[in-house]
Design a protein around this nucleic acid. Structure first.
Lengths: 342, 342
DNA sequence: GTGAAAGCGCTAACAT
DNA sequence: ATGTTAGCGCTTTCAC
């Protein structure tokens, strides 16, 4: 009676052959006679032999583990992204180790150390909001561990990235409102030092320009929470020349705008159109339900993982790749319908 | 110029000592002279030596990886649970590998195979809704891999479990409504064959009994979605002897009930109290915001992970442990305030 | 067609 | 106080 899991050695002893023969037979090596192969394979199946992944890793120096660092797991977007990553990884026989930075720079550093120690063969990162120094990311590269950033990308490190197309997402949403009759569209955004804000603003401005609508700076406000959305909308909607459309930073802000409009007895979407962003759960909970842009978290996750695995499996290819994930328009009830196409 | 990461061998060669001395010096073994120790440690730090976890695992037959199988990652409860697990694991230097079954029995089987192959040292499972056969779980135990179930426990396998206290959560919520003046409380539940429904119903009934309120079977309805909550509430609220309180299966159902009450111009909470369950995001998005029971996902995750690590580190202790995580009452705006305590 | 032996990185008996 | 050796499970030359 032996202890521990069955090894190649055990099989060899039991079958009176050498370990190398067993090893080869298991991989259907044609050098080995068909009879021996069959014998070994039958034995393995019968005794549920499972190769020791640890020993394998030690030899190949590859453990097929991918590390992922996200700011927060309990978040609709990130858990969706992780879900997408999982899907691809499972397909190609990789495992995913998750770490959360909890938006904390120091914890993020520890996450990186952990992953280096675990000798993962690649890392996917969406950086914490508090991270401003990138030495720890560089350390990954110094250890020859490929890194891909997604969503919250790090512009200070030269590597591949996967981002959501904020520019054209915003452009499309604003264009939709214009096509459905809006003439004065307000833009509620996050602080302008963020990359995301700049891209969204450009999308907004370009849509207005395309349709020759005037740009009114007073319609552009910093508001990225439900409360701020509510307050600023209430303010702006009581001015003489009130807007007839709102492009919000996210669904929470949009829900605040909606609240303000309802309180002012303005009809949504007839008098005021509202567009959210993210397609988070809340967008289906409001009444009327929010029109919004889906950021396709699954797709972000899948693409990032695919990019990484490609890089791992073709290390000689050093070209930079940036993927931009198109958002997808979700028209619900806070915007009007498109007029019939010609 | 050598390639690959620095090994003990490299250090030994460079310092003209043996690998065992290096190994010992790195662990501050007192057998080694302080000078040698310092020399080795300084060298290691300077050259950023990192022990090869793979080689270590091969020796110790332990890789400090924990597998987790959840039905769905993009879910408020499960991502919270995972978050809690992560916290504990990180503390004790374990890694977490996530798998999602996507509520699919066959995928769950594959998840289990994957984890066995990866030779994880323990597994945490919340089973898929479609799982009715437990052979794959048994296989984990046959491979000497400790298993803990959480939330969606498997009653067919003899192992430790961590569950949410549905009984007393419901009891507490119903009791709260009674204390704040409700006399006729409806109970909206999921299908009664589920463990969770039975436990909740018992909590509901016992609370009524404690305060000598009559049980009216017509107030107990199957409703576990927003739509069903809306429909059944609308129905029941228009009957002559309408209820003045609702205990819902989850926050979605509760939001449907709220919608119905608002449409019928009933004042919430003055004329109708409503309790949700889960403390999911939506509970803060409704107007008024829902009173609900928090299921403390973090706590579930932490406790499950602690139980597992204890089992891994003390394999000789074979006693069964079941943990019941108390829910916590969250009073928002769909219930009245408690009268002043005496 | 099969076996013996070396080696992946590290540790721990067992020398000296 | 330090070095030598064997071995964790597996693959892969190199022999025969």
């Amino acid at each position: 009676m032996k202890k521990g899991p069955l090894t190649i050695k055990d099989i060899a002893k039991d079958l009176n052959i050498s370990t190398s023969t067993v090893s080869r037979a298991l991989k259907d090596n044609p050098d080995i006679s068909p009879e021996t192969r069959k014998m070994v394979q039958d034995y393995a199946k019968k005794h549920k032999y499972k190769p020791n992944a640890l020993a394998l890793s030690l030899r190949t120096q590859r453990n097929n583990i991918i590390g992922v660092i996200v700011p927060e797991l309990a978040n609709h977007f990130f858990s969706g992204v992780l879900s997408g990553m999982e899907t691809i990884a499972e397909d190609k026989d990789y495992h995913v180790i998750v770490c959360q930075s909890s938006e904390d720079y120091n914890r993020e550093i520890r996450n990186v150390q952990t992953l280096i120690k675990a000798r993962v063969c690649g890392v996917l990162i969406s950086q914490s909001k508090t991270t401003t120094n990138y030495d720890h990311f560089q350390e990954l590269l110094d250890n020859d561990i490929p890194v891909i950033f997604f969503d919250r990308i790090c512009t200070g490190i030269d590597t591949d990235k996967v981002v959501v197309d904020d520019y054209s997402g915003t452009f499309t949403a604003v264009e939709y409102m214009i096509k459905t009759g809006c003439k004065r569209i307000a833009f509620f955004t996050a602080p302008m030092h963020l990359e995301i804000s700049k891209n969204r603003k450009n999308g907004y401005l370009d849509a207005l320009r395309k349709y020759h609508l005037p740009v009114d700076e007073s319609l552009i406000r910093i508001a990225d929470t439900k409360l701020l959305g509510y307050e600023k909308a209430k303010e702006i909607l009581q001015e003489p020349n009130r807007p007839d459309g709102f492009m919000a930073m996210n669904d929470y802000t949009a829900s605040g705008v909606l609240l303000a409009a309802k309180e002012l007895k303005l009809k949504v979407p007839d008098e005021v159109s509202i567009f959210g962003f993210s397609n988070s759960n809340i967008s289906q909970d409001t009444d009327p339900m929010l029109s919004t842009m889906d950021q396709r978290p699954m797709e972000v996750g899948k693409q990032a993982m695919e990019l990484l695995l490609e890089k791992i499996e073709n290390p000689e290819n050093t070209s930079r790749k940036n993927k931009i994930i198109k958002t997808s328009l979700i028209v619900r009830q806070t915007t009007r319908s498109l007029p019939e196409e010609l």
